[in-house]
Design a protein around this nucleic acid. Structure first.
Length: 182
DNA sequence: ACTCCGATTGTT
DNA sequence: ACAATCGGAGTA
């Protein structure tokens, strides 16, 4: 379950949303389970809903949700169809297209540290809900392998339940990590 | 129909 | 510390 969240560290995300080109290196991820994970949007309450239906779809697609009614956040669906598992992309290091990202972020910094900031920098909105991440305008590519040595692990951030599960992963000493564990 | 509240961020 | 801002989920 957390294998994909680990493997996604070091991967490359290419956005050509709106014609602007931006490339980032994923440095922070967080795993969310299906019905059995109380912190997940796929937690068994009402099963599949309008919001979480992409989580139960085929893997490799985008699950985008509105956070606090204000920000968009981007997940990669990781489980088999019907499993409801996804990995939240929480932070990244800007590689290319810095200017496009600065414009989308209205000059604020950091550019990509934090799920809301990352999505905003890449131009991700609900228009990309369910988008297959194998093709434009949002492509996820294999990048670098992050060794255990360089990988940090902590509990999940911001969740009210099951926060103690060590399902957050990040690259030590890398830019784009939203917040370090105490 | 009405309430509560969150996988966050930016400002006070 | 607190506001912004809105849809999902529970209750009625």
């Amino acid at each position: 379950m957390t294998e994909v969240a680990r493997a996604l560290l070091g991967s490359v995300l290419l956005s050509t949303v709106g014609g602007a080109r931006a490339i980032v290196l994923v440095t922070e991820t967080e795993a969310y389970g299906g019905a059995e994970d109380p912190a997940s949007h796929a937690a068994t309450r009402s099963g599949v809903t309008q919001r979480n239906r992409a989580m139960f779809g085929p893997p490799g697609r985008a699950y985008v949700y509105r956070s606090y009614g204000v920000h968009w956040c981007l997940n990669v669906v990781t489980g088999a169809e019907g499993a409801g598992q996804a990995v939240l992309l929480r932070g990244a290091a800007p590689l290319e297209g810095l200017e496009a990202m600065r414009i989308r972020r209205s000059g604020r910094s950091p550019l990509c540290a934090g799920p809301g900031r990352l999505a905003e920098a890449l131009g991700v909105t609900d228009a990309l809900y369910g988008h297959p991440l194998g093709r434009a305008p949002l492509v996820l590519l294999p990048g670098w392998t992050v060794t255990e040595e360089r990988m940090g692990v902590s509990g999940r951030i911001g969740v009210g339940v099951a926060a103690e599960l060590p399902w957050r992963f990040y690259v030590r000493d890398a830019p784009g990590v939203s917040r370090h564990p105490r």
